[in-house]
Design a protein around this nucleic acid. Sequence first.
DNA 1: CAGGGCATAGTATAATTGTACTAATTTTAT
DNA 2: ATAAAATTAGTACAATTATACTATGCCCTG
Lengths: 218, 218
Amino acid sequence: MKKYKVYIADDHTLFRKAMVNLLRSFDRVVEVKDAENGKELLTLIKYEEPDVAIVDLQMPIMDGAETCEQIIRRNPNVKIIILTMTMHDSAKYILHMMELGVHAFLLKNTEPDELEKAIYAVVEKDFYHNDLVAAVLRKNVTEKRSGQRPMFRQAELTEREKEILALICRELTIREIGQRLSLSENTVRNHRVNIMEKVGVNNTVGLVKFAYEAGIVN
Amino acid sequence: MKKYKVYIADDHTLFRKAMVNLLRSFDRVVEVKDAENGKELLTLIKYEEPDVAIVDLQMPIMDGAETCEQIIRRNPNVKIIILTMTMHDSAKYILHMMELGVHAFLLKNTEPDELEKAIYAVVEKDFYHNDLVAAVLRKNVTEKRSGQRPMFRQAELTEREKEILALICRELTIREIGQRLSLSENTVRNHRVNIMEKVGVNNTVGLVKFAYEAGIVN
DNA sequence: CAGGGCATAGTATAATTGTACTAATTTTAT
DNA sequence: ATAAAATTAGTACAATTATACTATGCCCTG
């Protein structure tokens, strides 16, 4: 019986440490390491490849999406399991990452048993298919048909854009953001417009909602 | 050496189960039970009182605030530890619950050691004082002094107001809302202003954030 | 039946956001 | 080293939101 190495990245220390304990209790897990953000996880992986990496979708430093892209590009043998808060909010991300080649998606309110099953499935069968994934796929199909807001709009914001979006969500005006970042108001306004285009909204409300769904605010 | 019974309520199964494991590993914890929402926790407590109840602030069925109120009213001997995601967003809740008499507040990204300390502190010294609490208190004082947003404003919106806030969050403009509800733009505008006053914000971003925190949008 | 909260509607002005472009410089990737 | 992307900055105008009031009718409660 083969045993697996599992690494986990999650910014909530309590959750992460508890998960480490849980993972260690699984029969076929031999080694568990943890990182508090995507960057740290990538460093870990540089030294030694795990069989499975468990990644929290919402992380502040390097978010789940970016982390997964890096892993897939640099360590394509590592199987990735995404942890996500709610299926609804992160549907567009899930779709994107399915395209990238992520191997499993689990809600954070999954039973431990299912996590264990998922770990074994991704290494042995390369994918773990569950209700969550099925739902996202179905939703994608139905919403595409009815011509709604583009389900997955690339929405990969640059660092500057994320920074500005975060400040918008702290209720700063364009002027205030300009002052804080020592930028022209025009520049900030342009970034704002670019963000809106990237995420596919056309007003402040949409921006804030996106920020929530993308985990840029909590 | 006295040993304690600890119950935990959190809607994220994975987190909750992992926490149960973690709690059981603490030297002076003898019994751990878990519930997936406030209601279930209250039922548990009806049959047997724990020494400590750990409550997630964000729960769908019966939220943390309500659960704590009930526990404090019906089982005043039970010490309550609140788990919260971010200090910033839930500051108003934390203050409210400090007034109610909750015994400790921890961020979800706390080290396990601190959780253990907090458990022993609340039963022995009735309160666990940490940086998070200090920060909220300080913020409350400074913001009160400078006449800022009232930290805890009950924010009980009327049905009409909730309805309009929901439409705002669907990215409708005042005009569109007026049309949809067959109201004058002015009326909608007035409701909007009243909502902003009630919840203590002064722009669209604040409105949307409130709606998220209050569960008016998901 | 008086007062309070709620829902409605109005006026007027200031401030901010939204749209639509152009354009130079720097950084990053192929 | 060259192309693409990111960051910076600008102009101009339209649309919407934010602030600050007044005012009326309705319904409920003490």
